[in-house]
């Protein structure tokens, strides 16, 4: 059953205004289970808009998106909130709550979804996830503003993992980081995926990172799927746009 898609989009279209362009244009794709999938493409190709459909933050103009076999937009609010425990999301700018400490941020999903759990237990789980994400105990009581960009990503990852989600989703996880931090975060993402051995989806325009950790590549262009396949197929693809993106992406980061 490993081929069952965890996320499936069927003819998904999105228009922000009635006469505007289609940001997603009849997009159809399948994200396989227990794989590391990277959705790549130039800026403005609909990656983030697609991700918002997957997370149920936005409604498509037409088409269907299923997550773990369920259509999020057909769910009752209470059912949707409970279902969202299956998704762990690391946002582009970490989206940490700035009025909570690092540990409180990580324990927050537990506090909301496991209300009967004792505070000590919550803190123990939160601390464990933070340590697994590579953050030392000395930072646990700091507020997010006192952390560097890389540390914030680690906290966001720990928070995303705390409910043991079935799908871990990263939105541009290395954007804005320097090359050293970028490499560290890349390694952390890969290690986390291997340790969890479950489904991971990353949305990025950083091709070397995507090639480093992904098993499955989906390239979007103009709101539709331009390429979908394995990394080796991506590297061999003779499609002009894929080849150009590949060349530019790899040259930009000095890899080959």
């Amino acid at each position: 059953m490993s081929n069952t898609p965890i996320i499936e989009a069927i003819k998904l279209s999105k228009q922000f205004t009635k006469d505007g362009d289609f940001v997603l244009n009849s997009l159809s794709l399948s994200i396989p289970k227990n794989k590391f999938t990277a959705i790549i493409g130039y800026s403005g190709t609909g990656k983030s808009v697609f991700l918002r459909q997957v997370l149920g933050l936005d409604r498509a103009t037409s088409g269907i998106v299923r997550v773990l076999g369920k259509e999020l937009h057909n769910m009752e609010p209470a059912e949707l909130n409970a279902f969202r425990k299956n998704l762990g999301v690391v946002f582009q700018d970490s989206a940490l709550f700035d009025d909570q400490t690092v540990l409180e941020n990580v324990c927050f999903p537990l506090k909301e979804h496991k209300r009967s759990m004792s505070e000590d237990k919550r803190k123990a789980i939160g601390s464990e996830k933070l340590k697994l994400s590579g953050l030392n105990e000395e930072h646990f009581n700091k507020f997010p503003e006192a952390l560097s960009g890389g540390m914030k990503r680690r906290v966001a990852l720990a928070r995303a993992l705390v409910l043991e989600p079935k799908i871990l989703i990263y939105d541009e996880p290395t954007t804005g980081l320097d090359p050293v931090l970028k490499q560290k975060v890349d390694e952390l993402i890969l290690t986390t995926h291997k340790r969890r051995s479950s489904s991971t989806l990353v949305v990025t325009h950083d091709l070397p990172s995507a090639l480093h950790f992904a098993d499955h590549i989906v390239m979007l262009n103009a709101g539709a799927v331009l390429f979908e396949g394995s990394v080796s197929e991506f590297l061999k693809s003779s499609d002009n746009l894929v080849a150009t993106f590949r060349e530019q992406g790899l040259n930009k980061y000095g890899k080959n």
């Binding site: 997370l55 582009q92 700018d93 989206a95 979804h113």
Partner: peptide, 14 residues
């Protein structure tokens, strides 16, 4: 604007 409200929503908190 810092997507904290989106983060709350995807955590299943209204």
């Amino acid at each position: 604007v810092t997507t904290q409200i989106d983060a709350l929503e995807v955590m299943g908190v209204r």
